Computed example of a mutant assay.
Amino acid sequence: MSDFSFAMLPGIETEEMLWLQELTKGYSSENKQRFLAVYQSRRKDPQTILICSLIGFLGPAGIQRFLLNQIAMGIIYLITLGFCFVGTIIDAVNYRKMTWEFNKKEALASAALLGI
């Protein structure tokens, strides 16, 4: 399995791809495939988070927080209309950072789950 397998993930950026390559550099080809399968099922696409953030202007605010497993913040966003839209604007601007932090945690959890 080549290192280009990570490039096929939707919305992946260079920083994330390099981090994943560094994380899996000692893995065998079979372990990389197993890791990629688990990580791909847990990973969130940054564009999905952006779209859900923008939905907060027209409908229920905080969907992006629920997708990122931040349930308490999601409920607060729902009740306060995304902190009167200020939180929704901030999330729409910072969607890549929020997604990258979530995906990084999921990559580490995926590696731990597989015991690699």
Rank of each mutant, 00 (worst) to 15 (best):
F83G: 14
I55W: 07
C84T: 12
K97A: 11
G62R: 05
E30P: 04
Y27T: 08
N94R: 14
V38C: 06
I71S: 08
G59S: 14
R34A: 14
I63P: 00
I51F: 13
L23F: 02
A92P: 03
N94M: 12
S41M: 08
G62M: 08
A111R: 05
V93G: 03
S53H: 08
S29F: 14
T99Y: 00
N69T: 12
Y95F: 15
I49K: 00
R96F: 05
R42F: 12
S110K: 00
G87I: 01
F85E: 03
Q33Y: 05
S28D: 03
A37M: 07
L58N: 03
R96E: 08
G56L: 01
N31P: 06
Y27S: 10
F85G: 03
A72L: 15
I55L: 15
L68T: 14
I89L: 15
L68E: 08
G87Q: 00
N103K: 11
E22F: 14
R34C: 09
T48S: 06
A107Q: 02
Y39Q: 03
I89K: 05
E101R: 14
M98F: 10
C52K: 08
C52R: 06
R96Y: 09
K97M: 09
G82D: 01
A107I: 08
G87A: 03
L54W: 13
T24S: 14
Y27W: 15
L67G: 09
L54G: 05
G87K: 00
I75P: 04
Q70P: 06
S29V: 05
G87P: 02
W100M: 09
I71E: 05
K25F: 11
V86M: 04
K104S: 10
V93M: 06
L23P: 02
F57N: 04
E101S: 11
Q40W: 01
Y27D: 07
S41H: 10
L58T: 05
Q33G: 07
N94E: 04
K105T: 09
T24A: 12
F57K: 08
L81I: 12
I55F: 14
G59H: 06
G82L: 03
F66H: 01
I76G: 10
S28H: 06
L81G: 11
A92I: 01
Q21T: 06
P46N: 02
N94H: 11
A92F: 00
M73P: 11
L68W: 03
I76S: 11
L54N: 06
C84H: 05
I63R: 00
S110Q: 00
N69K: 15
I79L: 14
G56Y: 00
L23T: 02
S110M: 00
C84F: 15
L36M: 07
P60H: 07
N31K: 15
K44Q: 12
C52A: 09
A111Y: 01
R43K: 15
Q64N: 06
M98E: 04
I75T: 13
G74E: 02
G74N: 03
G59T: 15
L108K: 06
R65I: 04
V38A: 09
A112Y: 09
I89P: 06
Q64F: 02
F57I: 11
A61Q: 12
R34K: 15
K32S: 09
K32P: 09
Q33R: 13
Q47A: 07
G59N: 06
Y95I: 00
R42M: 11
R96L: 11
R65Q: 13
S29R: 12
T80I: 01
F57L: 09
L58I: 11
V38K: 12
I76T: 12
I51N: 04
A109N: 10
K32G: 08
G59V: 13
L23V: 01
A107F: 01
